[in-house]
Design a protein around this nucleic acid. Structure first.
Lengths: 142, 142
DNA sequence: CTTATCTCTACTGTTTTGGTAGAAATTATA
DNA sequence: TATAATTTCTACCAAAACAGTAGAGATAAG
């Protein structure tokens, strides 16, 4: 039940953009350097994040990436769903036809409920809340 | 973020034992048949469940498996931790030395919190509650 | 027209996952 | 004590998912 690097890096990428919100397009190169992740790999995350309408980009010289919405309007559930796909803990939650037992299986109900709770948690965490926590943490270090 | 078959089958195995609680040792063969899972594969789950103190067994003829505790004393968190290992969403939650950023990384705090909520949910679900739901569901079908 | 940047396709190696084979150990019971 | 039924264990294999890289093409600024 580990998160893959897609999810972990995806959040770090988005948080980096949130920390530089309203500072114009941010170079992928800079994000990659700050986060210690290769540009090549980050591309795999950028693609679904664009498709999910969470980020936008400018091409060409002086191009770069920026959030498509305010940090307060972007939550962790959206980010994870974009980069990881469905967050259902088991496939039968999304689609009962994957298992003949689905109609009568009580464990399916259990996983459905657990998935719901998890999604609710992720939904309550927004990028701007994370930015706030980040800056608070940096204050404490001083 | 999908659960592996270990987790899914592990719960079904335990629920099967719970449904036959106090009926003496249950043959692996019977569980395998009811659940549609090979005996060979189930062995991989049985081993950690025994190590985790959740089930016990009798060897030899008329042997079999049974719960080591009452169904009300066994929750989903224990079962998952036994068959899947650590349930931390990311490795750095258990062990900060896996990442140099751990001390200052706000995303680590986020995953730590999400993990905590998830564990709390799993902990609140006990085998006997699932048995109750199962029998209620069967009543409704009639 | 040159440089900086994003965009895209394709490939590769490694790890994890799911599953099987077959033999050894243990116990009830005839 | 022999036999049948069952758990226990080691080893292995194939397929899928994951993590990461290479290199070329498209676009825009200056």
């Amino acid at each position: 039940m580990k998160l893959s690097t897609r999810g972990r890096y995806g959040l770090r990428f988005m948080l980096d953009l949130a920390l530089h919100y309203n500072q114009g397009p941010i170079f992928l190169k800079d994000i990659a350097q700050r986060q210690g992740i290769s540009e090549k790999y980050l591309w795999h995350l950028i693609h679904p994040l664009k498709a999910g309408g969470l980020i936008r980009s400018n091409r060409g010289a002086h191009g770069g990436y920026f959030l498509a919405k305010a940090p307060s309007e972007i939550n962790l559930k959206e980010i994870m769903q974009s980069v990881e796909g469905s967050l259902a803990l088991v496939d039968c939650v999304d689609n009962d036809s994957v298992c003949q037992r689905a109609q009568t299986c009580i464990t399916r109900d259990i996983w459905q409920e657990a998935t719901r709770v998890m999604l609710h948690t992720l939904e309550s965490l927004t990028l701007d809340a994370m930015v706030k926590r980040q800056t608070e943490k940096e204050e404490q270090v001083k």
